[in-house]
């Protein structure tokens, strides 16, 4: 079965039961945005305000600066919730999808045992991926804009190209670790073995997965682009609160894209002969 077919199958096979593991992550992200929209209340200031001040400094709790930097602070929240929540949610999602595929059934006890390895393996893989992505973005922010400015000139074009390169590389790094939770469910293995197998699968299936991963994420990426590069425009031309509403929509679309991406990856691995107990 070709990767494209796997993606279409994934899109056709949405079930709430398999989506539920990702729901707490989405709820946490949306909750942060609700709190960030309520910095005028003590409870909002004590929570989202505290996060903003820790992440960015005192300017994070002034109006309208708090909404201008909301894309940045919410990206920190997104990273941490995905790292912690995803460590549990992604293996559970992969297991739920695998159970619907021929030959993918597992006994409950076997499933629990493999999940117990999958959680820490996924956490470490995601953590490593985020660390590499942050390191890469640090390099990008320092050197790329200056280099591009000499070719492109216009500041918006420089920002757009920088953002695009940053996203493409970031997604490539995540694609490399997508298969870690999936590999953990193939057979019982130790933490090291699971990580190694997962990374090997990620590299093997990279060009089958990466383009489709980007395709599934396009709607979310479009909103991320608006929030990150158009923040000042939203502030000046519309209401500052619109930045939060864009991020609301982004969080939902991103969660849905994550669901379909891991669903698709599980099917790609199954089509290549994996997912058999």
């Amino acid at each position: 079965m070709r990767p494209w077919q796997c993606m279409m199958d994934a899109l056709r096979s949405f079930t709430w039961r398999s989506y539920v593991p990702l729901l707490p992550i989405l709820i946490a992200q949306l909750l942060y945005l609700v709190l960030a929209l309520n910095l005028g209340q003590a409870w909002g200031m004590a929570t989202a305000g505290a996060i903003g001040r820790w992440a960015v400094g005192p300017s994070a709790i002034n109006y309208p600066a708090s909404l201008e930097i909301l894309p940045l602070t919410s990206s920190y929240v997104e990273t941490w919730t995905f790292l912690i929540g995803g460590a549990f949610a992604l293996p559970l999602l992969a297991a739920a999808v695998r159970m619907t595929l021929p030959g993918g059934e597992m006994a409950a006890e076997e499933r629990s045992a493999r999940l117990r390895v999958a959680y820490p393996a996924t956490f470490l893989a995601l953590g490593a991926a985020f660390a590499v992505t942050l390191g890469w973005q640090d390099i990008v922010v320092r050197f790329l804009p200056r280099t591009l400015a000499s070719f492109l000139g216009q500041p918006f074009q420089v920002s757009l190209v920088t953002w695009t390169i940053s996203v493409l590389v970031g997604y490539a790094i995540i694609t490399a670790v997508v298969y870690v939770p999936i590999a953990a469910l193939d057979r019982r293995a130790g933490l090291g073995g699971t990580l190694r197998t997962g990374l090997q699968l990620g590299l093997r299936y990279f060009w089958k997965t990466y383009p489709l991963f980007l395709l599934l994420s396009l709607p979310a990426l479009a909103l991320q682009l608006v929030a990150q590069l158009g923040g000042s425009l939203l502030l000046v031309r519309t209401r500052p609160e619109n930045a939060a509403y864009v991020l609301f929509a982004y969080a939902v679309l991103s969660s849905v894209a994550t669901y379909f991406a891991w669903n698709m990856a599980t099917r790609i691995h199954h089509a290549a002969g994996g997912n058999r107990s």
């Binding site: 910095l39 200031m45 004590a46 305000g49």
Partner: peptide
Amino acid sequence: VSGCGGQERAALF
């Protein structure tokens, strides 16, 4: 935590 300066900050916001 709300009581720890949060009210005044919220008022300023």
